[in-house]
Write a protein that binds this DNA or RNA. Structure first.
Lengths: 226, 226
DNA sequence: TGGATATTACTGCAGAACGCAGTAAAATCA
DNA sequence: TGATTTTACTGCGTTCTGCAGTAATATCCA
């Protein structure tokens, strides 16, 4: 009984549609390009192509390099057909996993400094990823794309990544300004800042660009109705 | 041998720190509030509190409602201590999972319409989530927060969600405008639009707000150096 | 009043996915 | 020539998911 195909199967199939890869190369390529759309473990990248072979969507052949061997996976026509079918199916909603946001939600169990440190870490992670994507993409202008005919796709994809990382960095700034008005993490409830944000949400005004007045307001002297 | 605590353990512990919940209530609360920071399955929300009890971080007691029973979980002092410790640890980098972006990366295996449909679906998902968050948050202005003293936390968290969903919607618009200049999904390489985007990336200019000139450019008649 | 549907309240199980440890050859560096 | 890095994986235990199944209570509507 062969296991069913998952989105991860199609992610690997998509890579194999570009060219044949060894298991090791798949792990390298996936951390470079798939990481920001479909982050998967190295372990999976080694297991998944075997499942594809079992299903007849890829073939495997073993090369020898000295005493050591490696397996090269190649997509089959059935694989290309399966991939094409999948392309016309409806994608699942995007999901975000962020431990730093979990720290914000449960901030009352820690200090203001804990919260600020978590947000700083998130901003630094975003800045690192932003830099990596920028470096890779500016390289494309110098002809450094491994598959030049695919540049239009990877560059358009990169615009989303960069905007996302930029948002994270800007939002952390905004959040830190707001938190700077908090005397503590706990029990504040409806602060002036909270009310200002809620009014912006209600009126569908943008939240980060136009300041909510956080810097115009003076820090609360204690708790507000909460 | 008791299993180690995962981030998901702390997510549940964070909920229990607010008040005691039954397993069923945890699943409800998690889909309402945790979904956008730490999306977990219903199944896990039933299993996780048992692990916490086993570890002494929560206690369980069984109530009877007629013939049916339900288990109420309450955090212990040890649980609060563990949560406080966790709050000061370094969070993992945020990750995004988006099937629609995977369709973009592998777009050459489908049609332009497949790609546009996937992006539209992503924008609609984002619009739905934006609306849900907006509805819940405007309700807070009318005193509808179940834990009023926590309003400052959930509202600041909401600002990130709304900005993220807004970005997704705006980016899909941008991407669709770019794709409208493509005669096909495959083999285009360095189109005029791609070069324009890459120059913006290199110069650290914003990508979505200031148009790259997509509407000023005429659609390419065929392939560019690919 | 009663029958249909929805909500509450879970459990078991198979399979997907992860993280870590382990193995070892080849290549590179100093 | 020895040390480190890169290549190239596998096995195993744990985590997590999705689905099916079970069943009592609550609500709706005719």
């Amino acid at each position: 009984m062969s296991a069913r195909l998952t989105t991860s199967s199609y992610a690997v199939l998509g890579l194999l549609a570009i060219r044949p890869w060894t298991g090791y190369e798949l792990t390298q390529q996936a951390t470079r390009s798939l990481r920001f759309a479909w982050p998967k473990s190295e372990r999976l990248l080694y297991s998944e192509p075997k499942k594809l072979v079992e299903r007849g969507l890829a073939t495997a052949f073993t090369e020898s390099v000295g005493q050591r061997s490696r397996t090269v996976y190649t997509i089959t026509n059935e694989g290309r057909d399966a991939l094409t079918d999948w392309m016309s199916s409806t994608p699942q909603p995007p999901t975000l996993e962020a431990e730093a946001l979990l720290r914000l939600l449960f901030a009352e169990n820690g200090t203001i400094d804990d919260l600020l440190a978590a947000l700083d870490e998130m901003a630094e992670d975003a800045a690192r990823m932003h830099e990596q994507v920028t470096t890779i993409n500016t390289g494309y202008l110098d002809g450094e794309h491994p598959f030049p005919q695919r540049t239009h796709l990877s560059v358009l994809f990169a615009t989303f990544q960069l905007e996302l990382f930029d948002l994270m960095i800007r939002w952390v700034d905004f959040a830190k300004a707001e938190i700077a008005t908090w005397p503590t993490t706990e029990g504040l409830g409806m602060t002036d800042g909270t009310v200002a944000i809620l009014n912006n949400i209600k009126e569908h005004r943008s939240l980060l660009e136009a300041p909510t007045g956080a810097e115009a307001r003076r820090p609360p002297s204690g708790r507000q109705r909460g």
